[in-house]
């Protein structure tokens, strides 16, 4: 992972950066001067970010920097105070969380939000709701179409669970899974909605180094297999530096640096945000 080749980043017309291989393609996500105020506090302000169609982007920053708030803005849990979000070129201003999901954004949660009393398989099938079309009558009277759609859904759910090797637990209650498996199931559930942009909120939290390195492998695999963009919040720097094509660093609600992992590692503003300023510099 460490010797991975990072592509060069190019500026977009909106001054966002995009991967070389995604140049000329419509960015999946473009945030323009996005901001939200809670009371008088600007939790996020002037947030500009573009994500190419197959890019893995890391969103990092110290605790309380506003990373999860950005996710909540992107999924319309919060209504942005200023700025706009373009998803595949379309303005999302009037969309609700549900419509945004249909339009292609899926997410996981920092504090796991699974359907705990449902089976693992049903957790995934719920997320396929808008790709199963049978009506109420068809379902109540078990017409042939119902059976076909159910068996298709079952197969797709099993395929998706296979990404993380969770098929063996398909009938277990989601709440009874070990912590790591619950995190993985959340990713599977998000994938089941057929997103074009996957938002992962601290996917490696609570995982040991072996699990984390497996997760890195799987995230890259998901990008390659499904050809989607991934935006992830993570504190594990090995993971972020290992798999992200581009990284944005957030501090006090503002982006303080954007670029490839190498750029970020050497950026003085980032070092300052994480480690503080040197003593001599202060005096």
């Amino acid at each position: 992972m460490a010797d991975r080749q990072h592509g060069k980043l190019y500026p977009l017309p909106s001054q966002n950066m995009v991967l070389e291989r995604d140049l000329g393609k419509m960015p999946v996500l473009e945030c323009r001067r996005l901001g939200i105020n809670f009371g008088g506090l600007a939790a996020v302000s002037e947030f500009d970010l573009g994500i190419g169609p197959t890019e893995i982007t890391g969103l990092i920053g110290p605790n309380g920097a506003g990373k999860t708030t950005v996710f909540n803005l992107l999924t319309k849990v919060y209504e942005p105070t200023t700025g706009s979000i373009l998803l595949n070129g379309k303005d999302t201003a009037k969309m609700s969380t549900i419509e945004l999901n249909k339009a292609g954004i899926a997410r996981t949660f920092q504090n796991i939000r699974l359907f705990k009393n449902m089976s693992v398989e049903d957790n995934v099938k719920v997320a396929m709701d808008h790709s199963i079309h049978c009506g109420l009558g068809t379902a109540l009277f078990r017409l042939p179409r119902y059976w076909k759609e159910e068996s298709d859904a079952h197969e797709r759910a099993m395929d998706l669970l296979g990404i993380f090797g969770l098929q063996g637990m398909a009938n277990a209650k989601a709440g009874s899974l070990p912590y790591g498996a619950q995190r993985r199931l959340e990713i599977v559930r998000a994938l089941a909605t057929n997103p074009s942009l996957l938002l992962l909120d601290e996917p490696a939290a609570g995982m040991n180094p072996a699990e984390t390195s497996e997760l890195m492998e799987v995230i890259s695999h998901i990008r390659d297999e499904f050809q989607i963009a991934i935006l992830l919040i993570e504190h594990d720097m090995n993971l972020v530096m290992g798999i992200c094509d581009g990284i944005a660093v957030l501090n006090f609600g503002r982006i303080i640096a954007k670029g490839t992992p190498e750029d970020i590692q050497n950026n003085p503003a980032v070092i300052e945000a994480y480690l503080g300023r040197k003593k001599e510099a202060k005096s």
């Binding site: 969380t97 999901n101 939000r113 705990k116 009393n117 719920v126």
Partner: peptide
């Protein structure tokens, strides 16, 4: 029949976690 179809799954999902249900497109 209702509870064992996609409708039932969605209903149970709403009970278990409404925010998560919305995030996966359940109306």
């Amino acid at each position: 029949m209702l509870m064992k179809s996609r409708f039932g799954r969605a209903i149970l999902a709403v009970r278990d976690n409404e925010i998560a249900a919305e995030s996966v497109g359940v109306d």
